[in-house]
Amino acid sequence: MKESIFEVELNEKIAPRTYRIKLKGDTSAIEGSGQFVQVSLPGFFLRRPISIHEYDGQTLTLIYRVVGEGTRMMCSLQCGDTLSIITGLGKCFDIDACRKDALLIGGGVGAAPLYELCKELCAQGKNVTVILGFNRKDEIMLAEDFSDLGAKVIITTVDGSEGTKGFVTDALSLHNINYDYFYTCGPRVMMKAVCERIHTGGEVSMEERMGCGFGICYGCTCNTTKGPQRVCKDGPVFKKEEVIW
Protein backbone atom coordinates (compact mmCIF):
# COMPACT_ATOMS: atom_id res chain seq x y z
CA MET A 1 0.00 0.00 0.00
CA LYS A 2 1.02 3.57 -0.56
CA GLU A 3 -0.24 6.92 0.67
CA SER A 4 0.32 9.76 -1.76
CA ILE A 5 -1.15 12.96 -3.14
CA PHE A 6 -3.31 12.85 -6.27
CA GLU A 7 -4.44 15.82 -8.33
CA VAL A 8 -7.95 16.03 -9.78
CA GLU A 9 -7.86 16.11 -13.60
CA LEU A 10 -11.54 15.65 -14.26
CA ASN A 11 -14.68 15.33 -12.13
CA GLU A 12 -17.76 14.89 -14.28
CA LYS A 13 -21.33 13.74 -13.84
CA ILE A 14 -22.06 10.58 -15.85
CA ALA A 15 -25.51 9.64 -14.49
CA PRO A 16 -27.87 10.98 -11.83
CA ARG A 17 -25.89 11.37 -8.57
CA THR A 18 -22.98 9.52 -10.19
CA TYR A 19 -19.58 11.00 -11.05
CA ARG A 20 -16.36 9.99 -12.71
CA ILE A 21 -13.21 11.43 -11.15
CA LYS A 22 -9.84 11.15 -12.85
CA LEU A 23 -6.82 11.67 -10.64
CA LYS A 24 -3.16 12.08 -11.49
CA GLY A 25 -0.56 10.59 -9.18
CA ASP A 26 1.55 7.61 -8.18
CA THR A 27 -0.32 4.43 -9.10
CA SER A 28 2.65 2.08 -8.59
CA ALA A 29 1.11 0.30 -5.59
CA ILE A 30 -1.99 -0.78 -7.52
CA GLU A 31 -1.88 -4.46 -8.43
CA GLY A 32 -5.04 -4.88 -10.47
CA SER A 33 -8.80 -4.80 -10.75
CA GLY A 34 -10.88 -5.53 -7.65
CA GLN A 35 -8.61 -3.45 -5.45
CA PHE A 36 -9.84 -0.22 -3.89
CA VAL A 37 -8.39 3.04 -2.64
CA GLN A 38 -9.00 5.03 0.55
CA VAL A 39 -9.71 8.66 -0.24
CA SER A 40 -9.14 11.33 2.40
CA LEU A 41 -11.62 14.20 2.10
CA PRO A 42 -10.93 17.54 3.77
CA GLY A 43 -13.12 17.93 6.85
CA PHE A 44 -13.89 14.23 7.26
CA PHE A 45 -12.30 11.98 9.87
CA LEU A 46 -12.34 8.65 8.04
CA ARG A 47 -11.25 7.94 4.50
CA ARG A 48 -13.80 6.78 1.88
CA PRO A 49 -13.25 3.37 0.27
CA ILE A 50 -13.81 3.50 -3.51
CA SER A 51 -13.07 0.75 -6.05
CA ILE A 52 -10.65 1.26 -8.87
CA HIS A 53 -12.57 1.84 -12.07
CA GLU A 54 -9.53 2.23 -14.30
CA TYR A 55 -5.85 3.02 -13.89
CA ASP A 56 -2.61 3.36 -15.81
CA GLY A 57 0.94 4.47 -15.01
CA GLN A 58 -0.04 8.02 -14.07
CA THR A 59 -3.78 8.14 -13.54
CA LEU A 60 -6.47 6.61 -11.43
CA THR A 61 -10.17 6.83 -12.30
CA LEU A 62 -12.97 6.26 -9.83
CA ILE A 63 -16.73 6.25 -10.24
CA TYR A 64 -18.71 7.26 -7.20
CA ARG A 65 -22.33 7.75 -6.30
CA VAL A 66 -23.34 10.61 -4.03
CA VAL A 67 -24.94 8.95 -1.00
CA GLY A 68 -23.86 11.09 1.93
CA GLU A 69 -21.86 14.08 3.06
CA GLY A 70 -18.46 12.82 1.98
CA THR A 71 -19.40 11.90 -1.55
CA ARG A 72 -21.38 15.18 -1.80
CA MET A 73 -18.19 17.02 -0.92
CA MET A 74 -16.31 14.93 -3.48
CA CYS A 75 -18.48 16.08 -6.37
CA SER A 76 -17.54 19.69 -5.62
CA LEU A 77 -13.84 18.97 -6.19
CA GLN A 78 -12.31 21.01 -9.00
CA CYS A 79 -9.48 20.33 -11.44
CA GLY A 80 -6.19 20.98 -9.69
CA ASP A 81 -7.51 20.13 -6.21
CA THR A 82 -5.37 17.58 -4.39
CA LEU A 83 -6.30 14.61 -2.21
CA SER A 84 -4.41 12.14 -0.06
CA ILE A 85 -5.21 8.64 -1.29
CA ILE A 86 -4.03 5.24 -0.08
CA THR A 87 -3.65 2.91 -3.05
CA GLY A 88 -2.98 -0.80 -3.43
CA LEU A 89 -5.61 -1.98 -0.95
CA GLY A 90 -7.37 -5.34 -0.95
CA LYS A 91 -7.22 -8.42 -3.11
CA CYS A 92 -7.64 -8.42 -6.89
CA PHE A 93 -10.11 -10.42 -8.95
CA ASP A 94 -8.48 -13.69 -9.99
CA ILE A 95 -8.48 -13.32 -13.76
CA ASP A 96 -6.81 -16.69 -14.25
CA ALA A 97 -9.74 -18.48 -12.62
CA CYS A 98 -11.71 -17.90 -15.82
CA ARG A 99 -10.64 -20.32 -18.56
CA LYS A 100 -12.17 -18.80 -21.68
CA ASP A 101 -15.54 -17.12 -21.23
CA ALA A 102 -16.25 -14.66 -18.44
CA LEU A 103 -19.55 -13.32 -17.19
CA LEU A 104 -19.46 -9.97 -15.37
CA ILE A 105 -22.55 -8.86 -13.45
CA GLY A 106 -22.78 -5.36 -12.06
CA GLY A 107 -25.59 -3.65 -10.20
CA GLY A 108 -25.69 0.15 -10.26
CA VAL A 109 -22.36 1.72 -9.35
CA GLY A 110 -21.09 -1.85 -8.83
CA ALA A 111 -20.39 -1.82 -12.55
CA ALA A 112 -17.42 0.49 -11.92
CA PRO A 113 -14.73 -2.01 -10.79
CA LEU A 114 -15.80 -4.54 -13.45
CA TYR A 115 -14.50 -2.20 -16.16
CA GLU A 116 -10.82 -2.60 -15.27
CA LEU A 117 -11.49 -6.33 -14.85
CA CYS A 118 -13.03 -6.46 -18.32
CA LYS A 119 -9.93 -4.76 -19.75
CA GLU A 120 -7.68 -7.35 -18.10
CA LEU A 121 -9.77 -10.29 -19.30
CA CYS A 122 -9.97 -8.94 -22.86
CA ALA A 123 -6.20 -8.41 -22.86
CA GLN A 124 -5.87 -12.14 -22.11
CA GLY A 125 -8.02 -12.88 -25.14
CA LYS A 126 -11.02 -14.06 -23.14
CA ASN A 127 -14.63 -13.56 -24.20
CA VAL A 128 -16.55 -11.31 -21.88
CA THR A 129 -20.30 -10.87 -21.44
CA VAL A 130 -21.42 -8.08 -19.11
CA ILE A 131 -24.87 -7.81 -17.52
CA LEU A 132 -25.51 -4.39 -16.03
CA GLY A 133 -28.57 -3.85 -13.85
CA PHE A 134 -30.14 -0.46 -13.14
CA ASN A 135 -33.44 0.85 -11.83
CA ARG A 136 -34.28 3.09 -14.77
CA LYS A 137 -33.00 4.07 -18.19
CA ASP A 138 -31.50 7.38 -17.03
CA GLU A 139 -29.23 5.56 -14.54
CA ILE A 140 -27.52 3.50 -17.22
CA MET A 141 -23.79 4.06 -17.36
CA LEU A 142 -20.66 2.49 -18.81
CA ALA A 143 -22.56 0.36 -21.36
CA GLU A 144 -20.64 1.83 -24.30
CA ASP A 145 -17.34 1.70 -22.46
CA PHE A 146 -17.72 -2.06 -22.00
CA SER A 147 -18.79 -2.51 -25.65
CA ASP A 148 -15.75 -0.55 -26.78
CA LEU A 149 -13.54 -3.07 -25.00
CA GLY A 150 -15.17 -5.81 -27.07
CA ALA A 151 -17.55 -7.16 -24.45
CA LYS A 152 -21.12 -8.21 -25.16
CA VAL A 153 -23.34 -5.98 -23.03
CA ILE A 154 -26.81 -6.84 -21.70
CA ILE A 155 -28.76 -4.15 -19.87
CA THR A 156 -31.59 -4.75 -17.42
CA THR A 157 -33.81 -2.10 -15.84
CA VAL A 158 -36.26 -2.76 -13.04
CA ASP A 159 -38.95 -0.61 -14.70
CA GLY A 160 -38.27 -1.96 -18.18
CA SER A 161 -37.45 1.50 -19.60
CA GLU A 162 -34.49 -0.07 -21.43
CA GLY A 163 -33.17 -3.57 -22.11
CA THR A 164 -34.52 -6.57 -20.27
CA LYS A 165 -37.21 -5.69 -17.74
CA GLY A 166 -36.40 -6.93 -14.25
CA PHE A 167 -33.24 -7.93 -12.42
CA VAL A 168 -29.87 -9.16 -13.61
CA THR A 169 -30.97 -12.70 -12.75
CA ASP A 170 -33.87 -12.34 -15.21
CA ALA A 171 -31.34 -11.65 -17.96
CA LEU A 172 -29.58 -14.89 -17.05
CA SER A 173 -32.76 -16.85 -17.80
CA LEU A 174 -33.59 -14.99 -20.99
CA HIS A 175 -30.23 -14.95 -22.71
CA ASN A 176 -28.22 -17.98 -23.60
CA ILE A 177 -24.83 -16.88 -22.30
CA ASN A 178 -21.72 -18.97 -22.58
CA TYR A 179 -19.39 -18.65 -19.58
CA ASP A 180 -17.20 -20.76 -17.32
CA TYR A 181 -16.68 -18.25 -14.49
CA PHE A 182 -18.43 -15.14 -13.17
CA TYR A 183 -17.51 -11.96 -11.30
CA THR A 184 -20.07 -9.73 -9.60
CA CYS A 185 -20.23 -6.43 -7.78
CA GLY A 186 -23.31 -4.58 -6.61
CA PRO A 187 -25.93 -4.60 -3.87
CA ARG A 188 -25.65 -7.52 -1.47
CA VAL A 189 -29.12 -8.92 -2.34
CA MET A 190 -28.22 -8.92 -6.01
CA MET A 191 -24.91 -10.71 -5.47
CA LYS A 192 -26.62 -13.27 -3.23
CA ALA A 193 -29.26 -13.96 -5.90
CA VAL A 194 -26.54 -14.27 -8.54
CA CYS A 195 -24.53 -16.73 -6.45
CA GLU A 196 -27.61 -18.87 -5.79
CA ARG A 197 -28.61 -18.85 -9.44
CA ILE A 198 -25.25 -19.55 -11.10
CA HIS A 199 -23.58 -22.94 -10.75
CA THR A 200 -20.14 -22.20 -12.14
CA GLY A 201 -17.42 -20.84 -9.90
CA GLY A 202 -17.24 -17.13 -9.37
CA GLU A 203 -16.17 -14.17 -7.26
CA VAL A 204 -18.01 -11.39 -5.47
CA SER A 205 -16.81 -7.99 -4.31
CA MET A 206 -18.10 -7.33 -0.80
CA GLU A 207 -18.73 -4.01 0.90
CA GLU A 208 -18.49 -3.08 4.57
CA ARG A 209 -18.02 0.08 6.60
CA MET A 210 -14.34 0.53 7.23
CA GLY A 211 -12.18 2.06 9.88
CA CYS A 212 -8.70 1.76 8.40
CA GLY A 213 -9.05 -0.06 5.08
CA PHE A 214 -5.65 -1.73 5.49
CA GLY A 215 -6.25 -4.51 7.97
CA ILE A 216 -5.41 -3.26 11.45
CA CYS A 217 -8.69 -2.33 13.16
CA TYR A 218 -11.06 -5.30 12.60
CA GLY A 219 -13.85 -2.86 11.74
CA CYS A 220 -14.86 -4.58 8.49
CA THR A 221 -15.03 -8.26 9.46
CA CYS A 222 -17.38 -10.66 7.71
CA ASN A 223 -17.94 -14.29 8.51
CA THR A 224 -16.88 -16.74 5.80
CA THR A 225 -16.41 -20.47 5.41
CA LYS A 226 -12.73 -19.76 6.18
CA GLY A 227 -13.69 -18.04 9.45
CA PRO A 228 -13.74 -14.30 10.16
CA GLN A 229 -12.16 -12.31 7.34
CA ARG A 230 -11.40 -8.62 6.91
CA VAL A 231 -13.22 -7.24 3.87
CA CYS A 232 -10.45 -4.66 3.42
CA LYS A 233 -7.45 -6.98 3.57
CA ASP A 234 -8.63 -10.55 2.97
CA GLY A 235 -11.21 -9.21 0.45
CA PRO A 236 -13.02 -7.25 -0.85
CA VAL A 237 -13.04 -9.99 -3.50
CA PHE A 238 -14.13 -13.38 -2.16
CA LYS A 239 -14.80 -16.68 -3.88
CA LYS A 240 -18.49 -17.48 -4.15
CA GLU A 241 -18.12 -20.57 -1.90
CA GLU A 242 -16.48 -18.54 0.87
CA VAL A 243 -19.32 -16.10 1.41
CA ILE A 244 -21.86 -16.80 4.15
CA TRP A 245 -24.87 -14.73 3.06
Binding site: F44, F45, L46, G70, E208, R209, M210, G211, C217, Y218, G219, C220, T221, C222
Partner: peptide, 15 residues
Amino acid sequence: TPRIAECRSGMINSV
Protein backbone atom coordinates in the same frame (compact mmCIF):
# COMPACT_ATOMS: atom_id res chain seq x y z
CA THR B 1 -21.33 -5.09 11.44
CA PRO B 2 -21.54 -2.17 10.82
CA ARG B 3 -18.97 -1.68 13.56
CA ILE B 4 -17.73 1.75 12.51
CA ALA B 5 -19.40 5.15 12.44
CA GLU B 6 -17.85 8.43 11.47
CA CYS B 7 -18.23 11.46 13.73
CA ARG B 8 -17.04 15.05 13.61
CA SER B 9 -13.32 14.84 14.43
CA GLY B 10 -13.60 11.25 15.53
CA MET B 11 -15.20 7.87 15.13
CA ILE B 12 -17.20 5.23 16.94
CA ASN B 13 -16.06 1.61 16.93
CA SER B 14 -17.91 -1.44 18.08
CA VAL B 15 -15.42 -4.12 17.10
